[in-house]
């Protein structure tokens, strides 16, 4: 009974805060004297006529964002794993290189990295905008991913290494069969959070004219002056990607807690 009242109180508090925010937003837009034209937005998402279903620029942008994010996520995982293993390796050169990569990426803005990749490295390597965007994004998130994976690896009990070694397993066999399966399971929730960050960070790739969601939004705003409607819609579309990912992270966290 007590818990029930408590829950109700929390819901009431939440609704009050939400209502307050909504009111502030309304007041803000009132004082702006902003001419809302929400009715024009659906056409930018999709059209449905005699020719059937046609995705609008926003949906097309969303699809590009999904593709960029998916490939970057995969690459970021590879970069992260390799960097984590190098940082924990016996090789001085390997540890040094991993450290330089990590510190460079973590201490400079992503936007700068994307621009450097596109304007300095891409011409040398013959990369197009999408590829250099994906590469910059995955190098960036991979640096953060490596720290997560490294934390997972060092959290595995020393006894696991010793048992594996005493059975004659090599270091790489021990990583593959014993340490990584346990470590990655442990860090899945923070890795899923990193995926959410990656989806949002992918918006910065618009700076090198990749026609992803944010770029399409910017084009619409520039052409039709529907600033707020467009950006709110873009935000909602990002939420469609990030909320499921966040829920996945939450679910993974719960499942792991139950197991241990």
């Amino acid at each position: 009974m007590r818990a029930r009242i408590n829950t109700l109180a929390h819901v009431a508090a939440f609704m009050t805060v939400l209502g307050g925010l909504g009111w502030l937003l309304m007041r803000g837009s009132d004082s702006l004297n902003y001419p809302w034209h929400w009715e024009r937005i659906p056409d930018f998402i999709y059209t449905w006529d005699e020719q059937g279903f046609t995705p609008g620029p926003l949906l097309e942008g969303l699809w590009v964002t999904i593709k960029i994010s998916a490939v970057s996520l995969l690459l970021a995982f590879v970069f992260g794993l390799v960097t984590a293993l190098l940082r924990l390796s016996d090789s001085f050169v390997g540890r040094f290189l991993a450290r330089v990569y990590l510190e460079t990426i973590r201490n400079t803005p992503l936007l700068t990295q994307i621009l450097v990749m596109y304007f300095l490295f891409a011409p040398l390597l013959g990369l197009d905008a999408v590829t250099s965007g994906v590469l910059a994004l995955s190098l960036f998130e991979g640096a953060y991913g490596s720290e997560i994976i490294r934390a997972g690896i060092v959290s595995i009990d020393k006894g696991q290494w010793e048992a594996a070694h005493s059975l004659g397993l090599s270091t790489s066999q021990t990583y593959r069969k014993i340490v990584l399966p346990q470590a990655l399971r442990r860090v899945l929730p923070p890795l899923a959070s990193l995926a959410v960050t990656l989806v949002k960070d992918s918006a910065l790739v618009s700076a090198i004219a990749v026609a992803e969601l944010s770029k399409q939004g910017a084009i619409i705003v520039a052409r039709y002056w529907l600033t707020f409607e467009t950006w709110f819609t873009v935000a909602a579309l990002y939420l469609c990607l990030t909320i499921p990912l966040s829920l996945l992270a939450l679910m993974l966290e719960r499942r792991i807690k139950v197991r241990s």
Partner: peptide, 17 residues
């Protein structure tokens, strides 16, 4: 040597997964 020498630990160290 490790292949020919078996070891049993105080804390078992079975692979939990």
């Amino acid at each position: 040597i490790r292949t020919e020498v078996g070891m049993v630990f105080q804390s078992f160290n079975l692979f939990p997964h």
